[in-house]
Write a protein that binds this DNA or RNA. Sequence first.
DNA 1: CAGCATCCCGAGGGATACTG
DNA 2: CAGTATCCCTCGGGATGCTG
Lengths: 136, 136
Amino acid sequence: MIRNANRKPVIDAKECDISGWDMENCPVRDVLDRIAGKWSTLLLEALSRQPFRFGELRRLVPDISQRMLTQTLRDLQRDGYIDRKVFPTKPPSVEYRMTELGHSLFEPLSKVLQWAEANHPSVKAARVKYDESELA
Amino acid sequence: MIRNANRKPVIDAKECDISGWDMENCPVRDVLDRIAGKWSTLLLEALSRQPFRFGELRRLVPDISQRMLTQTLRDLQRDGYIDRKVFPTKPPSVEYRMTELGHSLFEPLSKVLQWAEANHPSVKAARVKYDESELA
DNA sequence: CAGCATCCCGAGGGATACTG
DNA sequence: CAGTATCCCTCGGGATGCTG
């Protein structure tokens, strides 16, 4: 039985490196908050394969509003994950292309996405089980 | 120069496997939405190291409100990432422990967290550069 | 100790219309 | 085509107080 007696003292802040994260300027949160948006990962996934133009992305992700497409692309660009090239044609065309930083981010990120897809059934099953035990 | 002429036709939905995700029941989003919360990764990181009790987690993450601590823990438990064991002592004590599913999630997830920490300077630099070019 | 209930606010994000 | 500008509204999450 796990009890207070043979429980280790509360984890040391230095050692654990968690308590040291004050949320105001936590590096991990600062990066994560931007890619945790509703559309970020989807756009990163698309652009990880090949460059796309605005309208192409719009067609690729039909559910996104052009407002959020613009904003998400700008945020991703601001953080250095994608590049934006304007071709002064008429009408103008704009190409979005993933940077090296973006690719290096997407490498570990894609593993999480793959995990999510692969383990979705387990998660759904866990939810059903939880919900059943709750209404008891 | 990249132009419309020698540009590949718009990516095939089947091949790309993106357009096929209707957002309503996209597996990836369904999983991601829960771990994208403000506190989820922090609690997963803590519990990936060792089990903790409610109050211990509270002290580990001082910024979290007990409301969000309770709610986030319940959500993580519901999705099967952590277990909750109640010891009928007085006063009662509750232990949270990461499940195998949680550990298997945290494996790829921790890589992203490490990436975020390691590349935070690059991201910050990109932002500065972007903001400077914007006010021009 | 480990929660639950309530109130409340700001940000994320949708819908629509207009523009260079 | 590739955006910008408004309006609006949900809801994630903070603060506070109460309970078994």
